[in-house]
Nucleic acid binder design. Structure first.
Lengths: 337, 337
DNA sequence: CGAAATATTTCAACCGATTGCAGTAATTTA
DNA sequence: TAAATTACTGCAATCGGTTGAAATATTTCG
């Protein structure tokens, strides 16, 4: 990088001290109008921009937010990043992105990276592998505000922003029942994730409400396209195949539709399918997918706003009360049900 | 943030000077083994981590890359970010993400943001609105290496990494012709973008090769789902409707398929469609979409690698020779042709 | 044993900007 | 005209770490 114009350059050229220049630039009342004008003119002439790093050092703040996320290349997460960046931008913060790629080990390294980069706060959605949270505890111990979103844990004293997974699952399954489904399967996420548990629980309670017995055989661990396609093939070949599916995400739901079509079944006549996410893809497939919108953009916004709130607070850690923000979900009904 | 352990804390506790501690931590030969061990032990006991910001200030480098991108919430770009983050991570760089949201004005602000954040280098794919490039020239004037990817311009002396748009378009249209299409429409991106021009040109030349006259009426500006769906409806209602479509991206292609289906046309029997991107969605729709894979992840990797190369160089700006890296594309044939 | 050589540690300046306090100049007041 | 205000401006320390040069401690050797 070229030599950047510093306050000293301006000071030397005008025969002033750096302190005077500094004060002139920020309209300090002590500085005479003449000096102030001269300094400002020269500053803009030279294209002076304050060195943020020097300020960072002095203020012990970087106006930077660290974002640790499983994978960017996934509609839901990219929508979240979009929301986060939007709020950060409006509040003059920058966002540093770190992917864990669903790897616990890499996630630990990511937490070290946000520490070295001295970000002011961190937004986290942890990996599927993560069971131990001490690397996040380390951030909290350093009094770096951490807000978890989507993938959260009760094991840490930290803010959470999540979609209302339980409610979303409940309305989805309720919808299937109202559409006449009697035998509803659930393709679930790992039960180590709260979203996995909440969605299963919503599924369970919606069945109960309609006096349908909960049948563990109809709950399958399958949250990717490939695993879901395979599982759907298997389960749909049974004589007593399900007439409805509630999938933990859209990819899984789409895989189910594809499997059903491949087996000569008609969607929604023979099998109805509901996804979770309301991704762009849900409107593209045929039939279009009924899905629970979990408002990723909103979720990102809220998570970032909550973090900014923490950053503004006088952090009296002894009085810390974690906040849990739940974003209501909404069923978007389309052709698959 | 809590008080972070500094070199001074260690120095005071051991009755040493900060210089000794600093040297001990980096195995400087001047330091006696006894001191070195003592310092290192205390450092790890206290959980000392060097303050990156102080180093940034001194070294005038942040080991941070700025990324300016139209929108994160788009498969192609998120794949690129993925590739970039991957390379940055392996080389111990961090990535700061700035969205332009396809807005020129915001893009200008983004370039200022990367300047204030004193990133070491910048990766850019500019907005559809951008006609004037002086904000990027400002970065270059500051001797901050800039690498453009996907959306590039010849107006600036800067490195470029692009997919082989011409070749991709050519093989796509060639494929349509070989499949029997006689009347091929092209849904194009704005001609202000190089990708728009290159893909049109590939389309044009593939027609020529097969002695099919180029018909301007078959070239439509439509690069979003909605605009493409509308345009496809219009053009497919004509008596002399096209029997093949080459769309500038997958969203556009999918919209065409949807429109065709809505009009009672069969894909690929009545109309064949090729997209560009090979996004996740292309394999989800029915029929699955034939598409030109532009390897977003690779493109991101290469762009970041090129930037890192520049960062390593002794930047003798007078001898700067821009590099243009072209990533070969590949046609992925599926059910839509 | 004392000087020279070597080993180890400290001093002080620096990176760029901020800010409390001291200092100087200009103006007002007695 | 001298003293007291007031208006400006500069000094120096600070943020945390690095590094050339100087200082001190320890060894080595004649």
């Amino acid at each position: 990088m070229k030599h950047q114009i510093t306050i000293k350059d301006i000071a030397v050229k005008l025969g002033l001290s750096t302190s005077t220049v500094s004060r002139a630039l920020k309209d300090h009342p002590d500085i005479s109008p003449k000096t102030r004008v001269a300094v400002k003119e020269l500053a803009s002439l030279l294209g002076y921009r304050p060195n943020r790093i020097a300020l960072n050092l002095r203020n012990n703040s970087t106006r930077t937010i660290g974002l640790i996320i499983p994978e960017i290349e996934h509609y839901f997460f990219s929508a979240i990043i979009n929301g986060i960046e939007e709020v950060a931008y409006k509040n003059d913060y920058s966002v540093m992105v770190f992917q864990s790629n669903e790897s616990y080990k890499r996630e630990v390294i990511n937490t070290q990276a946000v520490l070295t980069n001295r970000v002011d706060g961190v937004l986290v959605s942890f990996s599927k592998e993560t069971r131990d949270f001490s690397h996040f505890q380390r951030l909290i111990d350093n009094e770096i505000p951490v807000v978890f979103f989507d993938r959260v844990t009760e094991e840490l004293q930290a803010d959470q922003v999540v979609a209302d997974d339980y409610q979303g699952a409940f309305i989805a399954v309720n919808h299937l029942i109202e559409k006449g489904c009697k035998r509803i399967a659930h393709f679930a996420a790992p039960q180590s994730l709260a979203i996995g548990r909440s969605r299963l629980s919503g599924y369970h309670d919606a069945l109960l409400k309609h006096d349908i017995a909960y049948n563990p055989a109809l709950v399958v661990l399958a949250d990717t396209f490939d695993s879901s396609k395979k599982a759907a093939h298997d389960i749909l070949r049974n004589a007593d195949r399900p007439d409805g599916f509630f999938a933990v995400n859209d990819m899984s739901a789409i895989a189910i539709i594809k499997a059903a079509v491949e087996l000569g079944l008609k969607v929604p006549q023979d099998v109805k399918v509901v996804g979770f996410e309301n991704s762009k893809s849900s409107a593209l497939i045929e039939p279009e997918l009924t899905s629970v919108d979990q408002f990723g953009f909103e979720l990102g916004r809220e998570a970032c706003l909550q973090l900014l709130r923490r950053l503004k607070e006088d952090e009296d850690i002894s009085e810390f009360k974690p906040v849990k923000k739940v974003i209501k979900t909404k069923l978007v009904v389309r052709g698959s049900t």
